[in-house]
Write a protein that binds this DNA or RNA. Structure first.
Length: 743
RNA sequence: GCGCGCAUAGCUCAGUGGCAGAGCGUCUGCUUGACGUGCAGAAGGUUGGAGGUCCGAUUCCUCCUGCGCGCACCA
């Protein structure tokens, strides 16, 4: 065995990856027990970051280990069209060229996104290869592939026929910049200092035992009249502009202060509309004044209140975030923020503004563009959750799906238990268009007839809905749509039978609700089985300052730069070495440096053993005698016992996704037990003619066994050494690895 | 507000109911049969604070503090 004095990752990695592909080792082989993972599809918005590198290394470790154990393994690659996120990055790109998507029109814009898709999918897949991921490229999936799209549309149709999908006018999260609805999960809440405005709403009716003078209607009709208010109820709000759409004031039924006012009417300043005071348990009597203005069209809670009390819903902010014609003319066309100032000024001048307090509040922001989310009444499509989530909850509770770390099980469960209907329609151009066709019954009749189907219905005048589906609607089908499920009865594929439920899902904790939970109920609904047996939640990769790695903040590190500098093995091992099961992983490059040194150590151990082997008379005999050698000395005995222990522990820890423990264990064993101790002892032993041959045999045995344990973590360098040991054979080739398992 | 995680060397973090560990950094020596990306060694710690269980706690329990994360209808 001739190993160069120095291992150069750059010279080996691409060559070795090509060898693997040529040997076709990434496709499922043999008749072993199936083991399957589907990759969490990276968004095609950009290139991969350290979180992806970590997650995909974890999966590759599992997949390679399973393959070496002789299991029939598939790891399915794919990418996600990532509707809103991708549309946004392409829009940003266009903006730099001075264009908007409206300049292009829908068809052209979508073409533009497809060009982006081609480019970034290529980049992402290239990165995965550089990292050494042993994905089955013959099974590559994209969420907008024809078959995948069929699966998505069938899923929609299925839910609709079952009565689980409905169209409804409800308050939803609206992003005026993205010009689309958002699900609750796409909204990020951020604390911000703001103001709490106290506004006086004058009482209209006489209350018998209130002495104060009530205001006449005539007076209030005169906008310019400055009058003194003797009798009013004060509400507190952070969003005064929405008062233009108020249709009630609510108080807690138990609040004695307002008990006598319940049922009374107030005059809504600036609009002079008459609105009632209602009693509702949702009102916290300890907050503000204990009286809440109710704006059903622009607040989730207020909407609920309005349903309970049968209140009108006046939408005064439109989809562009501007005041519409339901509000007094003066404010029409203003942005909500401008309207706030105008409203406050007018209220103050008219004497309705009682006071303004500083107030720390939680602002809802669009998770994609950070614009403040405007809740508004909108006609959207929803998926009923009540029935769907039940089997998912049961499956988790019954322990059919096991989370690691265990605590995330409860988190997922809690979300499922309290999740309510999912807004699945988005006003975007990039994504799966709803299979909803509409036609007006006749030219005069405004009634709309709806047809749900994959094909355009017969007859004149049918148009397809402009909306697309929430990107997570399609991701929810990922575990089985990647294995060939299209929703058609005949589409039960061999892959589906063999590899579903998948063995493990490895992902980050930020998408437990968005994705993991939804995959569970989707799989149970469509296949009647769980999507995966185990869920591994890896830590979030932070930079050394503890900040989230983010491209826009410039706090990220590009894995490709590290691979280029230290080699893929060092990056992989460094990540695994730091992956010790904690919530966050403060990424430190020094771990990669240490791993590079570790790889160097492995290389030199192999060189030392190789050099001795070359001078040995019994080289071939040793290499092909796949038996555990017998110890002759105390040192022999110790290292062999230690090896056996380590092998056992590695297997146990991998089963529990203890990647960090395994990396530490391997590091310590290889460096301290094997190199520092045994190799040094072997030098003396080999001077003894009686011990020489046996010691050589033990050295080879140790090397072979170490390479096998290390291979899932550092596949390139171990493969390089292996190929020198066993000429053209691959350690990663299951049959060969199988044959080489020494008893 | 509710829930969860973390706290160990200068930094990043392992680990353990019984003498406190690694990597990086610092210092001293060293071409030893592969490795200077190395070897031998050194300095560096009240294991966040208080209490409890125990013969013994850094480890288990309770509380506190600090940092981080998630959820929530604070208008």
């Amino acid at each position: 065995m001739n190993l160069s004095s120095k291992y150069e990752p750059k010279n080996s990695e691409a060559k070795i990856y090509a060898q693997w592909e040529k040997a076709d080792i990434f496709t499922p082989k043999g008749n072993g027990q199936p083991f399957s993972i589907v990759i969490p599809p990276p968004n095609i918005t950009g290139s991969l970051h350290m979180g992806h590198a970590l997650n995909n290394t974890c999966q590759d470790v599992l997949v390679r280990s399973a393959r070496m154990q002789g299991r029939k393994v598939v790891w399915i690659p794919g990418t996600d069209h990532a509707g809103i996120a991708t549309q946004n990055v392409v829009e940003k790109m266009l903006k730099k060229q001075g264009k908007s998507r409206h300049d292009l029109g829908r068809a052209e814009f979508v073409k533009e996104v497809w060009r982006w898709q081609k480019e970034y999918e290529g980049k992402i897949l290239g990165q995965l290869k550089k990292l050494g991921c042993s994905l089955d490229w013959s099974r590559l999936v994209f969420t907008l592939d024809e078959n995948y799209e069929r699966a998505v549309l069938h899923a929609f149709e299925h839910y609709y026929q079952k009565g689980l999908i409905y169209q409804g006018e409800r308050v939803i999260n609206w992003c005026a910049r993205c010009a689309s609805s958002l699900s609750d999960l796409e909204v990020e809440n951020k604390e911000q200092s703001g103001k709490l405005y106290f506004i006086k709403y004058p009482l209209q009716s006489q209350i018998s035992n209130l002495k104060s003078q009530s205001l006449s209607r005539a007076k209030l009709k005169d906008d310019n009249l400055k009058f003194k208010i003797y009798n009013f109820i004060t509400v507190a709000t952070t969003r005064p502009e929405t008062m233009l759409g108020d249709t009630a004031v609510a108080v807690n039924p138990k609040d004695k202060r307002y008990a006598k006012l319940i049922g009374a009417q107030v005059i809504l300043p600036l609009t002079n509309r008459k609105i009632p005071i209602v009693a509702d348990g949702a009102v916290d009597d300890k907050f503000g004044t204990g009286a809440v203005k109710v704006t059903p069209a622009h607040s989730f809670v207020d909407f609920e209140i309005s349903v309970r009390h049968n209140l009108a819903k006046i939408k005064i902010i439109d989809e562009r975030g501007r005041i519409n014609d339901r509000a007094p003319e003066k404010y029409q066309g203003m942005k909500a923020r401008e309207a706030r100032e105008a409203v406050i000024l007018d209220l103050e001048q008219a004497g309705f503004l009682e006071k303004v307090e500083d107030y720390d509040m939680v602002l809802p922001l669009c998770s994609r563009c950070e614009r403040v989310v405007e809740p508004l009444l909108s006609s959207q499509w929803f998926l009923k959750m009540a029935e769907l989530k039940k089997p998912a909850i049961e499956a988790i509770k019954a322990g059919k799906i096991k989370f690691t770390p265990k605590r995330y099980e409860k988190i997922c469960l809690n979300w499922l238990e309290k999740s309510y209907d999912w807004c699945i329609s988005r006003q975007l151009w990039w994504g799966h268009r709803l299979p909803v066709w509409q036609t007006k019954v006749n030219s005069k009749n405004e009634k709309v007839k709806i047809f749900i189907g994959l094909e355009k219905p017969q007859g004149e005048g049918w148009t397809q809905s402009e909306d697309v589906l929430d990107t997570w609607f399609s991701s929810a089908l990922w575990s089985f749509a990647t294995l060939g499920w299209t929703g058609e009865r005949t589409a039960e594929t061999a892959d589906l039978r063999e590899f579903h439920p998948t063995s493990v899902l490895s992902t980050g904790r930020d998408i437990i609700f968005l994705w993991v939970g939804r995959m569970i109920f989707s799989s149970l609904e469509f296949l009647g089985e769980i999507p995966f047996e185990k869920v591994y939640i890896h830590p979030t990769v932070l930079n050394e300052k503890g900040q989230r790695m983010s491209k826009s903040l410039g706090t990220g590190i590009d894995p490709l730069v590290l691979i280029d500098r230290y080699g893929a093995d060092a990056v992989r091992f460094g990540l695994m070495y730091q992956n010790t099961g904690v919530q966050d992983l403060k990424f430190s490059e020094s771990a990669i440096v240490a791993s590079q040194k570790f790889c160097n150590k492995v290389w030199n151990i192999a060189r030392f053993i190789g050099i001795n082997l070359e001078t040995s008379n019994s080289k071939n005999q040793i290499l092909n005698r796949f038996q555990k050698p017998n110890p002759r000395t105390q040192s022999d005995k110790e290292i062999l016992v230690k090896l056996a222990k380590v092998k056992l522990q590695v297997a146990k820890d991998l089963e529990k996704f203890e990647f960090g423990k395994v990396a530490h264990l391997l590091y310590d064993f290889i460096w301290h037990n094997l190199a520092d101790t045994y190799l040094e002892n072997s030098k003396k032993q080999m001077q003894d003619k009686k011990l020489k041959a046996n010691t050589e045999e033990i050295l080879i045995y140790l090397l072979v066994e170490s390479l096998k344990m290390l291979h899932p973590f550092i596949p390139f360098i171990t493969e390089e050494i292996w190929s020198k040991l066993y000429e053209e054979k691959l350690v990663s080739q299951p049959m060969i690895a199988d044959r080489l398992i020494m008893k």
